[in-house]
């Protein structure tokens, strides 16, 4: 099978994730979209590892997962803090930092 297909799938997932970041207002869903983009990137790494016949791509994906886990913890804590003060999880609410 053409190995490109994996990469194309990764591209599609990445684009959908990015679109989700742009159009959804719920901070948690935005965050999920970011996770989706990370997963798409991971998929591309793993597919590339297989294409090149080395394991480095897989190691990179592994590190991405670790970093993503750390990022989720901090990100969700931030969302919680915002929710506590604003009683809302909408990221449009936190728009005071402007001109």
């Amino acid at each position: 099978m053409n190995a490109n297909n994996y990469l194309v799938l990764a591209a599609i997932l990445f684009t959908i994730g990015a679109f989700g970041v742009l159009v959804r207002r719920n901070a948690i869903i935005v965050f999920m979209s970011v996770e989706m983009m990370l997963n798409a990137a991971n998929l591309a790494f793993v597919a590339a590892a297989r294409i090149t016949g080395t394991l480095d791509g897989q190691v990179t994906a592994f590190f991405v997962m670790v970093v993503a886990a750390a990022e989720v913890v901090v990100g969700l804590a931030i969302i919680l803090t915002i929710f506590r003060t604003r009683k809302s999880a909408s990221i449009d609410e936190a728009s005071l930092l402007k001109y």
Binding site: N2, A3, N4, I12, F14, I16, A18, I51, G53
Partner: peptide
């Protein structure tokens, strides 16, 4: 607009090199 064009360009870039045979692990 951006999403569609970005995705299209990524796919175009990936597929432009033609079919790839994975070496396998």
């Amino acid at each position: 607009l951006f999403g569609i064009s970005f995705g299209a360009m990524l796919i175009a870039g990936i597929t432009s090199s033609g079919a790839i045979n994975a070496r396998g692990l």
